[in-house]
């Protein structure tokens, strides 16, 4: 019985993925992407990966979906105008459109062959055993009780630290790529009274729920990233509600919030090295406490970065036009 649910879910996911790419309308495509993300999150619940499910739902489907929706704001209307006249979009003579067919046929054939080989590879995979046993054995020394948190913030803390760096890097990249003035604070959207009320109501709830997720991460599913997204959602909502949070605080504070997760992690690591240990080798007695601090700071930083990414992308069109387009 349960296997039927899995099969059904798998089929739905594949259908959504294909449909999402094939549908001619961009807005449909984005909504299908939302649905696909939720389907993926469900799949992860089925696979017992609650942490991943929360992260996926929150970041990959939620946050990214919001970004895509926001992007539609600039893309969508013009796309629908151009839909009427296909040839205008491609700006190619007929001959060239025809010449596209052959490569695509070959591509589909290639994809099919590739699919068979990939399926064979996945099907024939030997059982490597995984690392469950060693993780279980070392869990008591890690300072937390939830194994995923232990791996994330202790056993493979280095990856996690770099990943916090990647988010910050992504924000810097958005600044550069979007042509956004670094020192101009993002302005507020037009406040909508209704929205404002909702936001004022929702914000504390989200905050508390985020804090709960963060705290629970020590013993069960939840943790820094999940909390971060919720807190990031607060920032986004506030931004939408006419209260751009980063326009309100001094810049140094903004930078401090952005970097403190990465910075604290790193400074702690350096102190540990100075103490004769290796990077991120926490003293077992303090491990639990240190991990909690790191998670909290990390969550705040990530939330700030996500908010800033959204706010800056959201403001892109109004921001710029100072750099001359060159051809």
């Amino acid at each position: 019985m349960s296997i039927l649910i899995d099969i059904l879910l798998a089929i739905i996911m594949v259908y959504l993925a294909i449909q999402c790419l094939l549908t001619p309308r961009l807005i449909q495509s984005v909504f299908l992407f939302f649905a696909f993300g939720l389907g993926l999150a469900l799949a992860w619940v089925r696979l017992g990966a609650i942490d991943v499910a929360i992260t996926e739902a929150a970041i990959a489907a939620g946050f990214l979906g919001v970004l895509f929706l926001d992007a539609l704001k600039s893309f969508a209307p013009k796309v629908s105008v151009k839909q009427d006249n296909l040839e205008d979009i491609y700006k190619l003579p007929r001959r060239n459109i025809k010449s596209l067919i052959l490569p695509r046929v070959i591509l589909v054939l290639g994809l099919a062959l590739f699919l068979f080989i990939a399926l064979e590879a996945v099907w024939m995979i030997p059982d490597g055993g995984g690392l469950t046993a060693s993780a279980e054995a070392l869990l008591p020394q890690s300072g937390v009780e939830h194994p995923v948190t232990a791996v994330l913030l202790n056993f493979r803390a280095y990856d996690t630290w770099l990943e916090i760096g990647v988010i910050l890097l992504g924000l810097l990249g958005v600044f550069v790529a979007g042509g956004i003035k670094l020192y101009k604070k993002p302005g507020a959207s037009k406040p909508d009274p209704m929205l404002r009320q909702v936001i004022l109501f929702v914000t504390p709830v989200l905050f508390l729920f985020g804090a709960f997720l963060l705290y629970i991460g020590k013993t069960g599913p939840g943790g820094a990233f999940q909390a971060a997204v919720l807190w990031g959602a607060i920032g986004i909502l506030l931004h939408l509600g006419g209260k751009p949070i980063f326009a309100m605080i001094p810049r140094w504070l903004f930078h401090l919030i952005l970097t403190m997760g990465l910075g604290f992690f790193l400074v702690l690591g350096f102190l540990l090295i100075a103490d004769g240990r290796t990077l991120f080798e926490y003293p077992p007695a303090y491990a639990g406490l240190l991990i909690l601090i790191i998670e909290t700071l990390g969550a705040i930083s990530i939330a700030a970065a996500l908010t800033a990414i959204y706010a800056n992308l959201n403001q892109m069109e109004e921001e710029t036009n100072e750099v001359e387009p060159t051809t």
């Binding site: 596209l100 490569p103 695509r104 591509l107 290639g110 994809l111 062959l113």
Partner: peptide
């Protein structure tokens, strides 16, 4: 498309 084809080849 050509990128894809060369990838598969």
């Amino acid at each position: 498309e050509i990128f894809g084809i060369s990838f598969f080849i």
